[in-house]
Amino acid sequence: MADPIHQFEIQKLVTLGHIGGHEIAFTNSALFMAITVVGIAALLVGGSSARALVPGRMQSVAELSYEFVANTIQSTAGKEGMKFFPLVFSLFMFVLIANVIGLIPYTFTVTSHIIITASLALLVFATVLIYGFWKNGLGFFRLFVPSGIPIYILPLIVFIELLSFLSRPISHSVRLFANMLAGHITLKVFASFITLLGGFGIAGWFGAILPLSLVVALTALELLVAFLQAYVFAILTCIYLNDAIHPGH
């Protein structure tokens, strides 16, 4: 049976050089990041290039994603949140398209690597910190001091708030990483049951119907998860950015 972990391996395609003792190579991960970016550009820019008054299929998809993300930001972070529309739109599309491309057999899932999801989460975390302090100055610390709390339990509350704030990038990145990883391992394990049972002759062929139908159902589920995780990533980004814009609870 195939190794379910093998699909996550980083394979060097071209070694380019070294920076500070680290080898820099063009890998399968880099290739699929490039495919993701090109795919998004083709969908959003190419799909809407006709600028039709009545949109075609691709333009409809481009417009739907634009409006979906715009509405998500406005409902969670308000009108001011639209400053971050390019960032949230980029994050959402990157995660969504990387997840969906990863569902195609023999491809590589960029978002199944913790280093990528952590980079995305830290990008959001850094944006929240920098914008929060730039806009509110020290008033940004009000985020950790909820109003209407008795003074004697305030230190405890501030500690908890601070801890939850600092753990955000961890939960933000691990959620996406773990979902993608677990989903792909499950798919691979059930798929290898099919070939395993197929090796046992006619009875095995009939027995393989069960894991096959499970793989079909799981693929549908993973498609939902791919979209859902992109949405969750985007909406959490909006909620965190809302804290930077309006730090008072």
Binding site: I24, A41, L44
Partner: peptide, 17 residues
């Protein structure tokens, strides 16, 4: 390697978007 290519890809994506 992943970080370098992620930065390149994401900056390109941000500019395109």
């Amino acid at each position: 390697s992943q970080l370098v290519w992620f930065v390149i890809a994401f900056v390109a994506l941000y500019v395109i978007i």
